[in-house]
Design a protein around this nucleic acid. Structure first.
Lengths: 190, 190, 190, 190
DNA sequence: GATGAATGAGCCTTCATTCAT
DNA sequence: TATGAATGAAGGCTCATTCAT
């Protein structure tokens, strides 16, 4: 008996992300995914019930990966600014190195595939960051503003940096990291 | 294509934007656009050569509209911070009140329809802002950083605010304007 | 403007029936129907929402046609036996000359497409016959048996004759009509 | 194909019949049969070369079963009417209790799977009945009519009874047996 | 110019059949 | 032998585009 190939799902996810990069979520066809993943169309349906399942599965995978990437090396017990910078940089670097995931997530959010429940689940990814921000406010290190807007400020900036790095073929040097972090930090610090 | 009925094109654009809002750029079909615009499918092809033309046309229209919206009431001769705040607020308000356009532009950027030339053309919209920023640097009012990143910082933040206002059903009160502008300003000021 | 071709629907129905004859209801594919009707596949979907609609539509058409065929030249005021023979012969002749319809109806009944409501509606076609049979019983000309079984007897026989005429390449001569009617009549007469 | 597990084939046949009952011959897929028979898809191909083999095999099995069912307790040496009634009742009861087989056979006849040879082979099943009918004619007990039509008359009626018993949820009581046999007998008797 | 029916390539999905284990 | 994953050719349906009116 041939066992279910444990490698197929990641393989399929990779193929899908590659297509997203090339022509957006609208450009994803099951045929194209299969071809890119070097399997037959029918095989896709062994691992996923339908196209929606595939996309939702990939979305969840991306969300999970992000979560672990964002908080790598982050020590909740350390000083605020250290932690904040670590997370800021993690997110930025993750977004850049996993740019396809970012594109996919963004487009998935405006696609007919997403459900309200999923949207809400994603918010939780940032919970550790939300807690850190709260601590920063408690310690009077950053502005006493609704965390919602502080998060908006921070992520909006990071996303845009990531996009422009890609779209304008820039490199993320330490200098550019510093410079952009400085803008962010000066904005939120009290 | 002879444009007889000058009213049809805006009508078609409006219909298209409405569809984008409802189900993303992938939800745009010529049939759906025609129906929404209350004309026949064939008629679309009198005003546009094909689907791509329509989308590109709409994109340009959006770009043009944005340009005029962004610099409304802006006096290049006035004080830096006044001008900067005016533009900042114009962009934010425009993005919120023309949210469909924003969605469309964003999705168009990642679609197979966009061409490199178009991307570059869009950059020009921000030229007056770029000049203002240069002046701010010359007057030592803001950080002496590559304008590219200052612009990135500013627009990334604005876009994210606009999105969150919509997705989380927030209202843009003067307080929220002030608070967010403060974050931005503290970030860039020298 | 091109008007909806009033001829298309009958044309499509004919093509469908032809296919049923050739390879059963399971052999009906939209592609095959289109090809047989000499139109494009997409055109089918202008006239029918989907395959089911087409089949249901055809079924209703067949039912309607049958109804009018069965009671041609039938005078409810005439003598019982005359009326009974007229209807008996009408049904038989109709089934033979519209054999494809008969096949289709029979197979449609065992297909996943039929709904309970439709089944019931079909029963009504035989109402005039049911009334006549009742009259026959009232006039003590035929056996006083539940009409359900009298109808079963009559139609079961007719259907089988029609099938065998076709499957064994027989001709329906007046002699064969008489002979078979005699069997039926001797069965039901009191 | 080496038939090791002699139990598998009947198991597969049963599964197939169950599917026919549920959704017609069109509803038979190899995957579904395998699932219903609780074996793997591949296993089907150990016992049958392909789908057609399976269906043809089942058809022959049904034909064989019918043959033995139809002539159970029939004594060719007994009086004509006794024998005729025995067979009449056997066929009716068999059709009702093996309704799925009847459905399958009927649908198989109009499917693309059947071949002319098979059709002819089936005719032989009724040979003992044909002989009995001939004897009835020789003994002047029944009408002197082509046996072809006498058989048509008899079987058409039986089939229709069986169908209606199922479709209208009737029970086959002795009264209903008698009543229907009377109709048939009065029809054919001389 | 305006209409909407007509077209057919292409998309999602199913399914008979094969094959590696 | 038995398994079920893998394959790819259709099948149902959609949609950009054309064309007759």
């Amino acid at each position: 008996m041939k066992l279910r190939d444990e490698n197929k799902v990641p393989q399929i996810y990779q193929a899908t992300l590659k297509l997203v990069r090339a022509s957006g979520i609208a450009g994803i066809t099951m045929q194209a995914v299969a071809k890119e993943a070097k399997i037959a169309t029918g095989t896709l349906y062994i691992y996923f019930n339908n196209k929606e399942s595939l996309l939702v599965g990939l979305f969840n995978e991306c969300a999970k990966n992000s979560a672990s990437g964002f908080f790598r090396n982050y020590d909740p017990g350390g000083p605020f600014k250290t932690g904040f910078r670590t997370i800021w940089l993690n997110i930025l670097q993750y977004r850049i190195s996993h740019f396809e995931e970012m594109l996919f997530i963004e487009q998935f959010f405006t696609s007919p595939y997403i459900e309200e429940a999923t949207k809400m689940a994603v918010k939780k990814i940032f919970d550790p960051l939300r807690e850190l921000i709260q601590r920063g406010k408690d310690e009077h290190l950053i502005k006493d503003i609704d965390s919602f807007w502080l998060l908006t400020f921070m992520t909006g900036n990071i996303n845009e940096i990531a996009k422009r790095i890609h779209y304008f073929n820039k490199k993320l040097t330490p200098e550019i990291e510093d410079l952009n972090f400085q803008l962010c930090w000066d904005g939120i610090k009290s």
